[in-house]
Simulated assay, not measured.
Amino acid sequence: MNLRHSFLAVLVAFLWGINFVAIDLGLHPAGHDVPPLLFVAFRFLLVVFPWIFFIRKPDVGWKAIIGVGLFMSAGQFGLLYLGMALGMPAGLASLVLQAQVLFTILLASRLLGEKPTRKQLLGVVLGVAGLGVVALGRSVVAPVLPLMIVLAAALSWAVGNVVARHSRAKSGLGLVVWSGAVVPLPLAALSLLVDGPDAVFSTVVDLQPATVLSAVYTAVFASLVGYGIWNRLLTLYPSSEVVPFTLLVPVVGMTAAWLVLNEVPTPAEVLGGLILLLGVATAVLGVPRKPPIVGPALRVKSPL
């Protein structure tokens, strides 16, 4: 990856690290709790409108657009916001979500023919062990369900990564905006079913400034800027060259959560987190670039 693209990848990691604190502040403004699925729907309204009227549809099929929207946007953020609303700390969420790197490697191997090396498989094993330590430590001090939900969000993100990579869209920003259109109506409807009309109506009519500012940050900086760059990089480089930069996300996220939210992880969470990051680093750092092998289910004219 050239220097300019490396700088952009670092910028994305910074924006995404701050994003977790912004989400937490938006979900829990003073004296209020915002329904998480409604919050995600609101975020993606800002991602889509008015930009969809000015940004051309990406040069990919509707299956790719819907797939990215369902997995990288609706699935990832619906589950992430739900996990954080149920008590998952922002800093820890930024760490656990990096399991997406390990999931991406495994899914890219199966679906894109990017066969993992022994080193990558060792990294996956270390990462799983780290997650086990985090889960064990978390279960001692708090319910483990929010952790499992955020882990499911990581899996959804990984599926979205593979779909985005296979799509080879030339416009990363276009893919973000057009795929984002998949999110608002289904998640708003789901929020009505889960939270009830009264909770949704009271949130809308009494929208707090912290929630609005959070939604603006997550929509503009995390989604439009961050995912616009991310999706473009995934179309230019193998997944193994792009995903290592997400190692910086929990560093930024946990530091920001400590400074802003006064979150201090337990020793077990720190130990498990270090093992997880070691696994991710083992899996993705220093991996030689090889021409990918096209899987039997996929037929492409050039390397993905």
Rank of each mutant, 00 (worst) to 15 (best):
M1V: 13
R4T: 10
F7Q: 06
V12R: 05
W16D: 01
A22E: 09
A22G: 10
A22T: 06
A22Y: 07
I23W: 07
G26F: 08
G26E: 00
L27V: 07
A30Y: 12
F39C: 00
F44L: 03
L46Y: 02
P50D: 05
P50S: 04
P50W: 13
I52K: 06
F53D: 09
I55W: 00
K57G: 06
W62I: 07
A64E: 09
I65C: 08
I65M: 12
G67P: 11
V68S: 10
S73P: 00
G75W: 02
L79G: 02
A85S: 15
M88N: 10
G91Q: 03
G91A: 09
S94I: 07
L95H: 12
Q98R: 13
A99C: 14
V101H: 04
F103T: 00
T104N: 04
T104Y: 08
L107H: 09
S109G: 15
L111E: 01
E114L: 04
K115F: 07
T117E: 09
L121R: 01
L121P: 11
V125E: 10
L126G: 04
G130T: 03
L131R: 12
G132Q: 04
G132H: 11
G132W: 13
V134A: 03
A135S: 14
S139T: 11
V140R: 15
V141D: 12
V141I: 15
V141R: 12
A142I: 06
V144D: 07
L145N: 00
M148E: 01
A154N: 09
L155T: 02
N161W: 03
V162Y: 01
V163K: 01
R165T: 09
H166Q: 15
R168L: 09
R168H: 11
L173K: 12
L173W: 05
G174E: 05
G174D: 07
L175K: 03
G180K: 08
P184N: 03
P184I: 04
L187E: 01
A188S: 05
A189L: 15
L193I: 14
D195H: 02
P197N: 00
D198G: 02
F201W: 15
F201E: 08
D206F: 08
L207K: 05
Q208L: 03
A210S: 11
A210W: 13
S214L: 00
S214F: 12
V216A: 13
F221K: 06
F221A: 14
S223I: 11
S223L: 04
G226L: 05
G228C: 11
I229C: 09
L233N: 03
T235D: 13
L236K: 06
Y237H: 05
Y237E: 02
P238F: 00
S239P: 08
S239W: 00
S240F: 01
S240H: 10
S240A: 13
E241S: 11
P244Q: 08
F245S: 09
L247N: 15
V251W: 10
G253F: 13
A257S: 15
W258R: 13
L259S: 04
L261Q: 00
N262G: 12
V264I: 15
G272Y: 13
G273N: 08
G273K: 08
L274F: 14
I275P: 04
I275H: 11
L277R: 11
L277A: 08
L278V: 10
G279F: 08
G279M: 04
G279I: 11
V280K: 07
T282K: 06
A283T: 08
L285A: 03
V287Q: 15
R289C: 02
V294F: 11
V300F: 01
V300K: 06
K301H: 15
S302L: 14
P303C: 03
P303I: 00
